[in-house]
């Protein structure tokens, strides 16, 4: 039963993150929602590895890569947010719509 429980936890994390990403105005808050979503994915991946193929080390590598990617992503995201704020005092997504097609 632990396998399913952990999957439910991962789904919960992902859903909370998704809700945060969709509902929050502040860029920082959205990024936090995204963190939660990626966290859910990582938990799910670890769950699958641990219960379905514990012998292979590949799963661990995937998880480490995902964590590294998440860290880089966050560093980039906060850097952009900081630069945006410095340049234009913008901190919510509705105020930055330059990419309108």
């Amino acid at each position: 039963m632990t396998f399913e429980l952990v999957l439910v936890l991962a789904a919960g994390l992902f859903s909370v993150g998704l809700f945060g990403a969709l509902s929050q105005q502040s860029i920082v808050m959205i990024m936090m929602g995204i963190e939660l979503m990626i966290g859910g994915v990582i938990v799910a991946a670890a769950d699958f590895w641990h219960f379905l193929a514990p012998a292979a080390a590949d799963g661990q590598v995937v998880i480490v890569v995902a964590v590294v990617a998440m860290a880089v992503e966050m560093a980039m995201g906060f850097a952009v947010t900081t630069a945006l704020y410095r340049a234009r005092q913008v901190d919510t997504t509705d105020m930055a719509r330059e990419l309108k097609g």
Binding site: L22, T93, L99, K100, G101
Partner: peptide, 17 residues
């Protein structure tokens, strides 16, 4: 094709969802 490109992040997310 331009119509979905609103420039609003939320809408992109919603579209992705």
């Amino acid at each position: 094709a331009r119509r979905p490109q609103t420039g609003l992040l939320h809408q992109y997310y919603a579209q992705a969802v």
